[in-house]
Design a protein around this nucleic acid. Sequence first.
DNA 1: GTAGAACCTGACACCGATGTGAGGTTCAAG
DNA 2: CTTGAACCTCACATCGGTGTCAGGTTCTAC
Lengths: 125, 125
Amino acid sequence: MRIGELAQRTGVSVRSLRYYEERGLLASERTPGGHREYAAKAVDRVVRIQVLFAAGLDSTTVASVLPCIHDEDGGPNELTTESLARDLMAERERIDRTIADLVRTRSILDEVIATAALPEGAGAR
Amino acid sequence: MRIGELAQRTGVSVRSLRYYEERGLLASERTPGGHREYAAKAVDRVVRIQVLFAAGLDSTTVASVLPCIHDEDGGPNELTTESLARDLMAERERIDRTIADLVRTRSILDEVIATAALPEGAGAR
DNA sequence: GTAGAACCTGACACCGATGTGAGGTTCAAG
DNA sequence: CTTGAACCTCACATCGGTGTCAGGTTCTAC
């Protein structure tokens, strides 16, 4: 498929898809004229990239993690370096802290929302 | 206390503290000479601000939420507008989605880390 | 062969919290 | 007083993924 279709299927902008390629996250064949051509698997890959980005990984980290992820096509994914593993454990800790902050913030918001849900003279009326 | 001490106690840079003030998140008295002077409560407030930032709220949202948070000083915190509540619920959903992404990413990382922890010929030998 | 959609590269803008540096003032202690 | 640390304001830089525009080429369908 071409880039427009991939964008549509994944909900990711064309701009971003080109950026993913530039950063080495997403490969593409080219037509003789230079247009990008993607295999069907690309959809999954883009989705995965988005999830990793949403978790706060930067493109460099994503690039190093992606080839180590076991996906259905069972490619050669044994490349997990020890130093990469160290980086990922640091990343993991960061994620844990972030989750903790999010949960705390969520309950703060819940409290605030709750007080708003009781406009004036709540309890009995 | 002065800004340097507040920075040290909270682990937040002086620059950031000034920024919080500029955005209306943190108030300060001024000495006759113009130096900022903070009450002890400021420490708590700064910590709270950090948590909210870490959860991805922007300074505007933090500014609108802060006065609605019930803290020990029991100030007048009934200002929760209905429209604010709406914003916060949207924010809450975003947080939920983010947590979901983080959890997914964390387990991806765990998998990758696990394969690295089994260098060569793991199981039996 | 031609029109129009889709694509290409390259470059610059943005957001938002924070870093950093210049140049000047205030504070506290001797 | 004087000195050095701490503070002040103002302004510009940064990072990273994404938006967007410009100017040009390719593809598809008629």
